[in-house]
């Protein structure tokens, strides 16, 4: 058993290392245009240099603050709206085509318009992050509570639990794993919304930094910043995965 899981982690790492190694060789040998892509080793050096640069760290902090703000508003707002909407089946059915539309449209296209209306700054960027994540959390909340097995509220009734007690002690714990999955998706969308907006039109933030480096032909710095962004996102994903594993511990997969 242990061998299997060790191998499962080893194989993709080896494959990835192989790809990186190939890239390194390709860049050094000049097979790839060095103006376009720099060698991975140089990317890492640029990353380290960036981490020591207070300006880079400041921009990263600004983006992080925006992501957190967008994530919190989107998840709390989506959750509350989902709870409010849940009992109204007629309204839910009527809203379904709008949800489908909303999912299809890249909300980021509203960002430029938003900057025209409210100017630059964190507010429109956070707004786009919220706009992207809110619906995901809303639909996840609806589905999570829909999936609570019918027998569980019956047991609450059998114990004479009131509405609030049933909601807090039965529905919420039962729905918790699905709610957390929704949270993961929402935060993912918030990240995309914030970073994409910063790329487009912003004066600060890591997205803006990357765009600025690109425009200024500072390729090395650009790759350092991109690598920093990617690593941060992967770290956040890892944390969320750990959280999900914690919530799902002791429950079999798919056992609702």
């Amino acid at each position: 058993m242990k061998n299997r899981s060790n191998r499962a982690r080893l194989v993709p790492t080896v494959v990835f290392a192989f790809i990186v190694g190939l890239l390194e060789v390709a860049c050094r040998a000049g097979w790839i245009n060095r103006q376009a892509v720099i060698a991975p080793s140089e990317m890492v050096l640029a990353l380290v240099a960036g981490l020591q640069n207070p300006d880079v760290l400041r921009n990263l902090g600004i983006s992080a603050m925006r992501v957190v703000a967008a994530g919190v508003v989107a998840s709390v707002g989506g959750f509350l709206l989902g709870c409010l909407l849940r009992p109204h089946f007629g309204l839910r059915r009527a809203l379904e085509p709008f949800f489908a539309t909303y999912y299809a449209v890249p909300v980021v296209i509203f960002y430029p318009l938003l900057t025209l209306m409210v100017g630059y700054g964190s507010l429109p960027i956070i707004a786009i992050g919220v706009a992207m994540g809110l619906l995901a959390m809303l639909t996840a909340t609806l589905e999570a509570f829909d999936r609570v097995p019918r027998v569980l509220p019956k047991i609450a009734a059998a114990h004479c639990l009131g509405w609030w007690a049933t909601a807090l002690r039965i529905r919420l714990p039962s729905a918790a794993p699905d709610l957390f999955s929704g949270l993961k998706v929402t935060i993912g969308y918030a990240v995309v919304g914030v970073i994409a907006s910063e790329f487009l039109l912003a004066s600060e933030g890591i997205g803006h930094l990357i765009q600025d480096d690109y425009n200024g032909f500072r390729t090395r710095d650009m790759y350092g910043a991109i690598l920093l962004l990617v690593l941060c996102v992967l770290a956040v994903n890892r944390l969320l995965r750990l959280g999900e594993d914690h919530i799902r511990r002791n429950r079999a997969a798919g056992f609702a």
Partner: peptide, 26 residues
Amino acid sequence: REALEPLVFGLLAIPKVAFYPVILLL
């Protein structure tokens, strides 16, 4: 699957916008 799935998952998770300048350079 063992070799590639985590990498494909990684591609899914990372905001593709981060790669856009790279694509433009290429």
